Simulated assay, not measured.
Amino acid sequence: MALIGADGKQVTEQEAPKIEFPCANYPVKVVGKGTEDFREVMLSIFEVHAPGFDYARVMMRDSSKGNFRSMTVYITATGVDQLQALHKDLTAHQLVHMVI
């Protein structure tokens, strides 16, 4: 998993900022196809890896032409393994273009 610094450049894992776990309010942004089932499908993946996140804080936004949809979900990150598994499952889904 590539890490991007605040300046937009890729950083090595040694330079990556340290996250203390558990980390509440950890944002995960998913960008994908603007289908009607995007929200439901993505939230089901989040529920597997971060059960109990606050559905009320989920933010959705459609692109100007409606071809793409982005979703930001705030989870409690419990560790690197959880984040890597979540990233793997999200990026493997056919509706997803990118995970930030």
Rank of each mutant, 00 (worst) to 15 (best):
A6K: 10
A56K: 10
P51E: 12
M42Q: 06
L95R: 02
S44E: 00
F53I: 01
G5F: 08
Q10E: 15
T76S: 10
H87W: 08
V28T: 01
T76C: 11
V48T: 15
T72R: 03
P51A: 04
I75H: 05
D81V: 07
K33Y: 09
T35N: 05
G52M: 03
V30T: 04
K18G: 14
E40I: 04
I75R: 00
V99C: 04
D37E: 03
V48E: 14
Q82V: 10
P51M: 04
D62H: 08
D89K: 02
V48G: 12
D54V: 08
A85Q: 09
M98A: 14
T35M: 02
T72W: 00
F46M: 02
T72E: 01
R69H: 07
Q94V: 00
G8L: 09
Q14R: 12
V48A: 13
A85Y: 05
T91C: 05
G32I: 01
D37I: 00
E47R: 03
A56C: 06
V73N: 04
V41D: 02
L90G: 03
Q94L: 03
F46W: 05
A92C: 00
D54H: 11
S63R: 08
L86R: 00
A2M: 03
S70F: 08
T91Y: 05
Y55S: 04
H97Y: 13
G8A: 10
Y55D: 07
K18T: 15
V28D: 06
H93C: 02
A77P: 15
M60C: 03
C23D: 14
V41R: 02
V96D: 01
E15I: 06
V48I: 15
K65M: 11
A50L: 07
K9L: 13
D81A: 15
V80E: 15
S44W: 00
A50K: 06
L86G: 05
M71T: 01
V30K: 02
G5L: 10
P17S: 13
P27N: 07
V31P: 06
D37F: 00
K65L: 11
D37K: 02
F53A: 02
K18D: 15
Q14G: 12
A24H: 15
M98F: 07
K29I: 06
P22T: 10
V30I: 04
E40L: 02
D37N: 05
F21P: 15
M42H: 05
Q10T: 14
I19G: 07
L3H: 11
A77Y: 09
E15L: 13
G5V: 09
V28Y: 06
G52E: 05
F46V: 01
L95N: 01
D81M: 07
V41G: 05
V48P: 12
G52P: 13
S70N: 14
L3D: 08
F68C: 06
S64I: 14
L86Q: 00
V28I: 11
A50F: 12
G34Q: 12
D54N: 13
V28F: 06
Q14Y: 12
F21I: 10
A16D: 14
Y55H: 14
F46K: 02
L3F: 12
G8T: 08
G5A: 14
V99L: 03
